[in-house]
Nucleic acid binder design. Sequence first.
DNA 1: TCCCCTTTCACATTTGAAGAGA
DNA 2: ATCTCTTCAAATGTGAAAGGGG
Length: 359
Amino acid sequence: MMDQAHFGEYLLRQQMLHAASLSGLQHRVGADAEPPACEARLLNAELWRRFHDIGTEMIITKGGRRMFPSLRISLSSLDPREEYCVLLELSLVGRRRWRWAGGAWAAAGGAEPQSPRRLMLHPDSPAPGHHWTANPVSFSKLKLTNNTMDAQGHMVLTSMHKYRPRVVVVRARDAAALAWGAPHAAFSFPETEFIAVTAYQNDRITKLKIDNNPFAKGFRACGQSKCKRKNTDTESNNTEPSSSDTSEPKRPCSDAASSCSEEGSLRSSSPRSPPLVESPAPLLAPPENISPPPTFYPPELPYIGQLHMPMPLGFWAGGLAWSHALPPPPPRIPSPTPPAPAPCRRVKSFTISALLGEG
DNA sequence: TCCCCTTTCACATTTGAAGAGA
DNA sequence: ATCTCTTCAAATGTGAAAGGGG
């Protein structure tokens, strides 16, 4: 939990961000600033691809639901001594609403007006380049909600709409500098696209989540939950074990052998490391189905003033606030075998003023 | 009123952090 | 200081029920 000092810092950041947004809307500055030389790789790309192949769905609830898989990236080529802020945005893909029909997702009319709160500042921000490059940047604590009145700082999404995460790296000593034309680089990964749902539609997605999310272990074929439910059902009708129970004997869940967790999947991912391919595609060309926002939709990043920081991530979670007064935190222990990084698509380099549609 | 689709809620289970004690 | 054990909050998908629109 965030203690009082951290909460104070949190409030200060919020105020800075609010001021930043106001200033940013009023000043068009830094449009010609050099974006940070930065590269990004998706660390758990293999797992994301498995979901993407089926059609990733993310549960959203009133109280907030974590993303699975979570977004974990590796940053490189940052100036070790420069300060950077890292943000995550969830961009609406297309202007469609989707529906699950006949075992597939199909467009179902126009999108509904979107909540503005779709941008999050990584709690480690700001931090020097060596911090970002030495540690994986994880948004695992990020929660998604459909509650437009949410006060927890969760990402507010609309069910049955498609989103794509986008990571923004800003060279800035503090969040307030975001408004002053601080140089940016942004990265998105097509395989991280997902449809927000309040209940899973695709059974294959459900199974993949259960097989890979440790918290859903109880629902695996070998788990107790399903068996117990089955037993309960059958016991209510018949004291003898059901044929399904006997035909499928329980076996120990070999977590070590299977990709039972996100980390496990990472470990089991392909050892080959594809070279980073900086997309030669036009920087301004959006992914094929990301449409420019219509007039009644907010542009992609006009809501910096409503940045919300959810539950403390990284070292905040451990009770240590990242600040200039503290020494840099020790590097996180890397996984035994580094996951195969995936090439990303560098969307474009830009400045905040460009993001605000002033360019 | 009925049907279909979507959302909400209680539930059982697992995970992991925190604290106590050896 | 380290390890083990216990406790409990948080996280998960399930399935039934409720809600809403045509």
